[in-house]
Amino acid sequence: MADLQEEPEAGPSVGAPETVPGPVLAGALERAAALLAEHPVADGCNTLVWTLRQKPYHDTDTDIPRLLRSGAVGAQFWSLLTPVTGDRVVADTLEQIDVAHELLGRYPDELLVALTAGDLADARNRGRIASFLGPVPGSTLTDSLGTLRAFHTLGVRSLAPAGAAWAQEGLTPFGHEVVREMNRLAMVVDLTACPPDAAIEITESSRAPVMISHTAAAALTRHPLNVPDEVLLAVRAAGGVCMVTFSAEQTGDSLHAVADHLDHIRSVAGPESVGLGACFGADPPHGHPAGLGDPSGYPRLIAELLDRGWPEPDLALLTWDNAARVLRDVEFTSRAAHHRKP
């Protein structure tokens, strides 16, 4: 596996700051840096594991120095979703879990394997990135919950129902069992790419808050992965969090377009239900928006939101507090379920 701290030998530096059109006031950048020092980014989606499986020496848009310093990232969900389907999906997911553990073990001074919300705070206090495994694809589950429990034992803390036979138009009886068991295990339900009807039903079925780890507002950009306002309202009612991606295809090709999506989701779902899920680690089909090509763009995005009038408490919710609260609430629901169970 490639050493992510090494610089490429030739070509443009992957760590070079991007040129971003449009002015951002220097004072806002200073305030953004101070805010991120106190409330780093809890990023809902990093796809580096898949990229490393395909090209172990790939020059990615994510590396340890930029995550810790330039990007001010304090936590990540390491996506284990895979395009593989059919009989290979379980084996492929297990291979991705293995790569993730190898990656985390390679950088023990920078990355901390996170299993609980307490690990989130512990990693921040120790200057490390809290690293949660997941989501895994819901299609790995068929008619048994044993696979779900096995993933949990391996450290996975999130599952995405999209594409699963038990969560197509709505939840089947087995689908309801899956959601209940995820609540019991303190695993986060990630509604990314779920059809709206299914997403709303899952949100209503779950006793714990849900997450949408990488999406954008369908009201601004029509895209299959973007969520309509009725789903945003359901997430708000359930106390969940909707995390905006940095995919130009879903948001538009500029930092300002991403800020527009954040504005919309905040206005519909409320400041307590919006977060960031950049999907760094692999280039999306249409690239990242200008100014957000790697984690070093986070401070400039926060500065843009400050210029738009976002109060600092709302920005603290956006970067860290909303994700941390969802994880705490998911664990609280789990403890309550264990208490009720004979």
Rank of each mutant, 00 (worst) to 15 (best):
Q5D: 08
E6F: 02
E7K: 07
E9K: 08
E9P: 07
A10F: 14
V14D: 10
G15F: 12
A16I: 12
G22N: 15
V24L: 14
V24P: 15
L25G: 15
A32R: 06
A33L: 05
A37P: 04
E38Y: 11
H39C: 13
H39W: 13
A42K: 04
C45A: 11
W50M: 09
W50G: 07
T51R: 05
R53D: 08
R53S: 07
Y57A: 05
H58A: 12
H58F: 10
T62M: 07
T62L: 11
I64H: 01
R66L: 01
R66M: 04
A72W: 02
G74S: 04
A75G: 07
F77D: 05
W78I: 00
W78R: 00
T85W: 09
G86R: 02
V89I: 12
V90E: 08
D92Y: 06
Q96Y: 04
E102A: 05
Y107R: 00
L112A: 03
T116S: 07
A117E: 03
A117T: 01
N125D: 09
R126N: 11
A130I: 03
S131T: 12
S131P: 10
S131K: 03
F132L: 09
G134F: 00
P135I: 00
P137A: 11
D143E: 07
L145K: 02
L148C: 08
T153E: 13
R157K: 15
P161M: 02
G163H: 08
A164F: 14
E169M: 13
L171T: 11
P173V: 14
H176L: 15
E177K: 14
V178D: 14
R180F: 13
R180L: 14
E181C: 15
E181W: 13
M182F: 08
M187W: 11
M187R: 12
V189T: 15
V189S: 15
L191H: 13
C194K: 03
A198V: 08
S206W: 04
S206Q: 08
A208P: 09
P209H: 03
M211E: 10
I212T: 10
I212F: 05
A218N: 09
T221F: 10
R222D: 14
P224I: 09
P228A: 10
E230F: 08
L233D: 15
V235L: 14
R236K: 15
A237T: 06
A238C: 12
C242I: 09
C242E: 09
C242F: 03
V244M: 02
T245D: 04
T245F: 05
D253M: 00
S254D: 04
H256A: 05
A257T: 01
H264N: 00
I265W: 00
R266H: 04
E272C: 04
P284Q: 04
G287I: 09
G297Q: 00
E304K: 05
P311A: 05
L317A: 11
N322F: 06
V330N: 01
S334D: 07
S334W: 07
R335Y: 14
A336D: 12
A336K: 06
A337D: 06
H339D: 14
P342N: 10
